[in-house]
Each structure stands twice: as C-alpha cells, then as structure tokens.
Design a protein around this nucleic acid. Structure first.
Lengths: 303, 303
DNA sequence: ATAATAGTGTCTTTCAGACAGTATAGT
DNA sequence: ACTATACTGTCTGAAAGACACTATTAT
C-alpha cells in the first residue's frame, strides 16, 4: 500500500457524511398441506407467508416481514438469515436476494431507510416458528389473491410519442392459520412503456385494520411475481416440499403458485429431467398408492 | 398520528447506531457501430461499457463504473441517474436495478459500503461523454470476453449428501476506443447446488495495471449476464439502436450480446411482433437497400 | 364393484432450427 | 454481369397442449 493511500485512509472519516440506514427484510414462503382426515381425497395446499406482529413503533401492532437493521461487520445475506432466525426461529433455508427498496425516501417514518429484500423458501415440516422477545407474535398467513388487469392500453402523449400502459391490481387477503387475523390490501402495478423503456410504479393500498406494516405488501407482491417466474425454469420449488414427495403433491405446489390448473401428463413430462424415481410409495389412502420421487442431482434443464 | 407514536418519533435518534454507506453504481452499455468507409460491406458492431478514471483515492488512477454516494433526500434510481449525468454527462436513458452488493464487508477500503448497481442502455449517437471535475477521464471500452466452463461436476460431500458444482471463468479484455488503455481481468463464478438450494460465489482476479477498480468487474459480468437473459424475452435491445434501424443491424446487436450467430429468417420471425415496418430505406451501399423498421407499440410478446 | 387418484400412450398444434431460393442496389 | 447483402418460402423435428386410456388401493 502506498504512503499516499495510507494517509488518505487514515484521514477518511465516514461520519462526516449523513448516511441512510439499511435493513434486510425476508419474504419467507411455504406450502401448507392441509392435514386432511379424509382418506378418500388428497389434501389441498395453500401458499403461506410468515409475518411477525410488531411490538414497537413504528407500525406497532401491525404485521410485518421479519427483518431489521444490518450490522457493520456482517454481510447482507447473513443479516437476512440472522433476522429470520432471531425473529421467527427459522434457519437453514434457501434464500436469495430480491430487490432493494429505496425509491421512496419516506417509506419509514423514522429516518431514510433502504431495505434489501430477500426471498426464502422452506418446507414447513421441521421448522417450528417462535416469536422473539422483540415481537408480539408470529404466524403463518394463507395468501389469497385476485388479479384484475386493465390490459395494454396505448395512449398518445403527443404526436409521435406514444406510451403503452398496463395496469394490474392484485387484491390480497392474508388470513392467519388460526383464522384469528385477516389482513386486506391491494397492490396496483402500473407499467408504462415509452419506446423501449419500461417503468413500473407500484402503489399499496391498505384496507383493513390491523394490516400490513411499511410497504411490505409491495415486497410480498414482488416476491410472488419472482417465484412465479422462477418456478417455470428452475428447480426452486423443491425447497417447498419434503425430500421425498409424490408428483401429485409437487404439481399442486406448482398450481397454487402459478394460479392455474396444469394437465398432469404434461406436468410430469416437464418435471421429469429434474426428478428421480425411488422405490418408496405413499400409503394409507383409499386409492392407488403414489410413488415417491426425489430431486435429481444433475444440471440438465437448469437455467 | 397517535401521541404515543409522535413521542417515539421525536425521541428516535438514528445517529446512535453505526450505519454503512450506500452508493449507486451504473453499468452503462452501448453498441458501437464501427463507421466503415467500405461501401461494399456492412459494419461490425461492438459492445461497449463506459468507465471513468478515478482522480482520487481509493483506486486512484484505476478505471471504475460511474457512481457514488447517495444523498439523504434522493431516491435510489435518481441517485444513479445523477451520478451518471455528473460523471459522464449521459442522461435520459433506460435504467433498471441490477443487484445490491454487500456480502463482502471489506469491498471498499474506506468503510463498510453497500452498493446498489444499475444497468443502463443507450444508443451511442446523441450522447456526448464528458468527464467531470472529479474524474481524470472517461472512455468507452470495447468488451471482449472468453468463457471457459467446467461443466456440472457432481461431488459427494458425504453419504447421501451430494452437491453439483459448475465453474465458469469469464476472461475479459476491455480496450478503450482509442486503443490507449487495456484492462484485463477474469471473473470466476462457482455455482454450488445442494438439494434445491443454489449458491453462487464470484471471484474477481485482476491481471493488468491499470485495471478495474473495486469489485466492478463482477458487477459488469453480472450486468452482461442479465442483459443476455433479458434480450431473449423483452424488447430491451431497442434501447441500444436508433429509432429507425435495419433488421441486419438489430440482428448484429443480438449476436454480439448473445455471443453467437443467428440464422436470419429465424431471427426475423422471432422479432416480428416487436417491430413495425416503415417506408424508409437505408441508402449509400452497393447492395440491395435495407428497409428501416421501428419498435412496435403493443404489448404482444412482452414478458 | 366403486370411488378416487396414479400413471401412460398418443394425437395435434405450435414453434424453433436450418437451408435454399429470389430480389436489388452500385459499379 | 458481379458482388454483397436483403428478404422470403418451406421442410423438419422438437416441444407444448389436450385428451383418452389403463392401473391400483381400501372399503
């Protein structure tokens, strides 16, 4: 290191500049397999998100994503994992960076806060959730959503300058497993395309009390969008099921995420290169027993 | 607002916590149409990135992406645009968030810095680059890269626990337009897949002097990867060409980004829904004149 | 036998890849 | 006429969509 640089570093004082705070927030999703007592029917599955009830201001008493301020000596992803573990007791899960929220300067009433969001996926079995001392409660919420689209209007801003506008409103109802809490909100995404440039504006409207804290409705909306995209061309969904699973179960996971029914033979054909047969079978149902599969270890059909 | 909350906000002092600094960095790419004097051949195109030569520590004299510290009252994307304008004089371009770098705590020698990176695409004509007072110089660099892959090895970590490992090394040579500066470095991406979880580790190795500052080689590598993906299913490439363009030119843009030759009839078929015919023609070449096209204004074939 | 779901075979349609052909400027 | 590129038509084969059929369990 040169003398010059050494001198510079010694005289560098970061506290002379005003800095924003940085948090990590985790959208942690799972699939709930409604334990059906009925032996004559397969169980239905629900997509769920884990929220914590805030004990302190701001948004005291509201439900929020697990997350918090990063520490100076920890990496971003470690911070996300730590907050998740501290606030909900969940650890050892798939986690990936989603998006960094910082275009609204006043998204937090305390100070300027930039939030790096993460997507985590877990197999619900084997993860007991426990609220930390900081939180009043922690619950899994069933995600129900309805999309209303106003498809691709082309509007003329002026002569020779046109814009395409696509407005999508996603209406969410999050209901806690025990049915005690219901959160309602809607997210309106406005996509504006002028020539090749696309801009997106997202608005969150809260419509129940208690509801979702901060702009976390937006973050969940974004996470679901990402999951819907990635599930189509990566084996990410295997994080949501046990090590051994039936194809019917895996298919229902795809269906609840994609919000559409799939045709079985086609699904099996598409998923085939990602899975491996075992010689185990599901039992206890009054129907033909389903073979159990596991994820294949190979790179075929990966991105 | 409740009295309670008001009290909380009044007593909240952000300076009691130590905070990292936040910067925005912009990978700005363009296509250079080598002005060929030859009337009997079409010109070749190059993919270029804009770098600034640092006047100050750290990495003084090295080449870096335009970027800098965000201000407390400006949004992230506005910060990225401001830095781009200030340091290079480029403005009014397509810009989108890429990734937030903060897993290495010591990626900047001054203090803990988290960097939100953006991808910008411009049509080179109509953007004159000017170095700011803060920078010693600013130049467009031709991007040449070579990929070496070590394909999908499966390794056994222990009984019943396997991992797939895929190592890709991208060797970069960035040469300034005037051929005066050459930067060499390589980026090694190691993808590790255990069950459904994929982790990525990226290592940057510098191999020339001067070379690229900070971890900006990684950021450029990531940006090119993103561009290669997005160009396949969005009209993002239209940001790189003039309003009116020939299909041969557009095809060569795709080819230089994807690093492969495309078969013309197939390219035209795929691009057809995104473009609109005009009744203009290219002139001055000793060959059949090419029709000029423009981007279509509709949402077909968009994501 | 019946109910319910597991699993397979195959026809059709759509789309991507490859190549061969025709068209047209300037010299 | 020649060169270089623009543009079009069409064959082929792979992949996606749709549906009909057979298989297997507990009661």
């Amino acid at each position: 290191m040169s003398e010059d640089l050494k001198l510079f570093l010694e005289s560098y004082d970061p506290s002379q500049y005003e800095r924003p705070s940085v948090t990590t927030d985790v959208v942690i999703l799972t699939i709930d397999d409604e334990k059906m007592l009925n032996k004559r029917k397969n169980s239905e599955v629900n997509l769920q998100v884990l929220l914590v009830k805030r004990k302190d201001h701001p948004y005291k008493g509201q439900w929020a994503l697990p997350g918090g301020f990063i520490q100076m000596d920890e990496s971003l992803v470690v911070s996300a994992k730590r907050e998740l573990k501290e606030e909900t007791n969940v650890s050892g899960v798939h986690i990936e960076q989603l998006y960094t929220w910082g275009d609204e300067v006043d998204r937090d009433p305390r100070t300027r806060i930039i939030s790096v969001s993460y997507l985590a996926l877990v197999n619900k079995e084997g993860h007991d959730i426990i609220a930390s001392d900081d939180a009043e409660d922690v619950k899994w919420f069933n995600i129900e959503s309805l999309s209303v689209m106003n498809n691709g209007k082309s509007i003329e801003l002026s002569k020779e300058i046109n814009a395409d506008v696509m407005v999508t409103t996603n209406i969410y109802t999050l209901t806690s497993e025990d049915k005690e809490v219901t959160l309602n909100y809607s997210i309106t995404n406005t996509l504006i395309r002028k020539k090749a440039t696309q801009n997106k504006e997202t608005v969150q409207v809260i419509s129940s009390d208690p509801s979702i804290a901060f702009d976390h409705g937006k973050v969940i909306d974004y996470a679901l969008e990402r999951l819907r995209n990635k599930i189509k061309y990566t084996p990410i969904a295997f994080n949501l099921v046990p090590d051994y699973f039936t194809l019917a179960h895996l298919q229902s996971v795809y269906e609840v995420i994609l919000k559409e029914r799939l045709i079985r033979p086609n699904f099996r054909r598409k998923i085939a290169p990602m899975i491996e047969e075992t010689n185990l079978y599901e039992t206890g149902k009054q129907m033909r027993p389903a073979k159990l599969f596991k994820q294949a270890v190979n790179w075929d059909s990966w991105e």
